[in-house]
Design a protein around this nucleic acid. Structure first.
Lengths: 107, 107
DNA sequence: TCGATATTTAGCTAAGTATCGAAATATAGT
DNA sequence: ACTATATTTCGATACTTAGCTAAATATCGA
């Protein structure tokens, strides 16, 4: 859980996740959105991988990253739970948060 | 936003927020729940104050901290929005997330 | 095999963070 | 005024992080 919040604590990494929400992208494609060096971006990807927030697929020489939405969901939801556990509106809320995050992705 | 996630990235600080969810507590009372020194706890409180996640009230020689639930709500919600903005189920979801976090606090 | 391309690893620096013990501050009670 | 209590500030140390350039790795195409 700390790993996830640590990953989210950097604006560059949050933006990477946002970009990946739209569609999977290669490391280079992602990097081109930011004013930092490729190695720096690579380090950010490593942090996101470490937090299990993205998956990497290597095809030839390029690596495509994909958002692991369910992990992000579970983390935010799990945390929100600490602040509202044990209510009978739990199920409804869970679905709502999930929909909020997934919007347009799953329905 | 980075400040909030940075604050949440530390387990001690998350636990402090959890404790404060039940009721406001003094610095000493909070500190007694953790195996670290008072100065260290004071630093954690400063981070949480900096992130605007808690309020401090001084009464005599003791300082009572109180959770600013709405700030936490807005942060999580604002972030979730990035991953699901522009949907018409927005209003419903907002209320649901709010309820999730506030559970038993506001109704 | 050679050169170009995509990405990561290595090695570094500067800046930030968590922790501590000791000292400072502020207030209360005697 | 003095002492005890609650909390923070100070100064130091150890560790982590974000960023860079240069070099390594891997794959593709000629």
């Amino acid at each position: 859980m700390s790993d996830i919040f640590k990953a989210l604590a950097d604006p560059t990494r949050r933006k990477v996740l946002e970009l990946l929400r739209q569609r999977p992208m290669t490391a280079g494609e992602l990097a081109s959105h930011f004013p930092v060096s490729r190695p720096t971006m690579s380090a950010h990807f490593a942090v996101l991988r470490e937090a299990d927030l993205i998956d990497a697929f290597k095809i030839g020489t390029t690596i495509t990253y994909q958002l692991k939405l369910s992990v992000l969901e579970d983390a935010l939801l799990g945390f929100a739970r600490l602040f509202g556990a044990g209510t009978d509106e739990q199920a409804t809320t869970d679905a709502a948060v999930t929909n909020q995050i997934r919007k347009g992705t799953s329905e």
